[in-house]
Design a binder for these strands. Structure first.
Lengths: 115, 115
DNA sequence: CAGGATCCTCGAAGATACTG
DNA sequence: CAGTATCTTCGAGGATCCTG
């Protein structure tokens, strides 16, 4: 039989579209070394708006990939961490990110050369 | 230093956003076993419109991940295949797809249970 | 500090019809 | 068969201001 990611309206595709977007990949990748504060993520990740970061974080949290904790010690704040489920996503995400880093130049070359 | 995927307007992030979307992942995944005709892809991949399929295919082709060939033998048509560069993307993409398939149920459970 | 609320815009993407 | 063309809608996402 065909793989499930080929079928529309199936759990596999729904799940894929949850994580197969740039912000999700970057955010999960950013949490690979451990918990991060909201503000830290905002500054570490370039070009992301508060709105998008909050939205992505909450979307991932609502689906059990990320956990949100409140910090009471000084300075108070919020931190986000990968859940075990989120950590299981880490391997594919890291592989994809590394691929993008390694092949960025070649892709750019082809794209610009092809015009 | 930080990983490049954290920086906006850099080649790595541009490249990441090229492949980190659902259609790109599904299309590359669909081409994992070899070339496929346009029409075959259209029917194998559920829920994709001609417009989106053409768009995704041409975008991937413009960036050197996919190659487009014209078939002259009967029945005539067009087929798409992964380039070597596209095949190097295969491992991350397969890993991501497999993850989505394996964890779809758990994700759905968390999402629906959390309301 | 970590968002929520609001407004606004612009492009992604569906529907439909046509074509080499 | 493999697209292109056109129209339209709809929501992602930026900018800005406000708040516990």
């Amino acid at each position: 039989v065909e793989s499930d990611v080929f079928l529309a309206d199936c759990p596999a595709r729904t799940t894929l579209s949850l994580v197969a977007d740039t912000w999700s990949v970057v955010v999960v990748f950013a949490l690979r070394d451990g918990p991060n504060r909201y503000g830290t993520l905002l500054t570490r990740i370039g070009g992301v708006s508060k709105k998008m970061l909050t939205q992505t974080l909450h979307k991932l949290a609502a689906n059990g990939l990320v956990e949100r904790r409140t910090i009471r010690s000084a300075p108070p704040g919020t931190e986000y961490a990968l859940t075990p489920l989120g950590q299981s996503l880490l391997e594919p995400v890291i592989a994809l990110s590394r691929w993008a880093e390694r092949n960025a130049e070649q892709v750019a070359e082809v794209r610009d050369g092809g015009r």
